[in-house]
Amino acid sequence: MTDSINATGADGGLGGFFQNLTDSIISQIPFWQDVLLPALWDGLWVTMQLVVMTAPLGFLLGLLIAVSRVYGSAPVKWLAQLYVIFFRGCPLLVLLFILYFGLPSVGIVLGSFMSALVGFILCNSAYNSEYLRGALQSIKRGQLLAARSLGMTKMQGVMYVVVPQALRRALPGVSNEFIYLIKYSSLAYVVAVIELTGAAKIIASKYFMYFEAFAAVGIFYLVIVTIATIGIHRLEMKYAIPGVSGAVGKVSKGH
């Protein structure tokens, strides 16, 4: 009996796995307190900066692209579509490499943080533009007709009547995209930005504490993503309008 337990422990089976897990956590409290968590807090701060700067800019650029695709002249539509095809089709990691390693070879040096930021904004805006385009196109033609019958210009009709309705319909998609943004901000690590993931990786390699570092950073992400999801849900309820809500343009994706 005792032998079999010992054997499992030594083999690293399931029982041993949890035994090891508990042991290592307890014995490493100082490591967590003094090394790991401070590093992760610093990383979290950088992640937050990336996310908070990308979200509004990616959204506005996405709206611009979407409006161009729906209401623009032929060449504008075409350019906007090309933009979407490129930045949706190109893996974000490849895009980051182009910005960080490629651009300097033609004399444009953005640096780590800027490369990540620019890459995120381009990617985020391309995806957002698809949700927004679907929402814009779902607004009935009569809405713009009615606006124009009151003497509004096309611009005014689009701005005051179509876009406010479309925004509400695109909200589920756009907020999904925000959750994705939190997660793909981790790719910044690859272009040497020390955000959450980067911080964890550095500690993991330096102290050879892979399990601890990645478990901890995983918990960080789960907590942030869960809080953001709940927060966004509240926001959606708050801005819901009878007869205007509802998901449109379901272009889901993940990173």
């Binding site: 019958s149 009151l150 009547v161 205007v244």
Partner: peptide, 20 residues
């Protein structure tokens, strides 16, 4: 035309109230 349209109020078959 935007000025002229103000002088001609229009009522639509399916109302077209601004839903938001």
């Amino acid at each position: 035309i935007n000025g002229y349209r103000q002088k001609m109020g229009m009522v639509f078959q399916n109302f077209n109230l601004f839903d938001h």
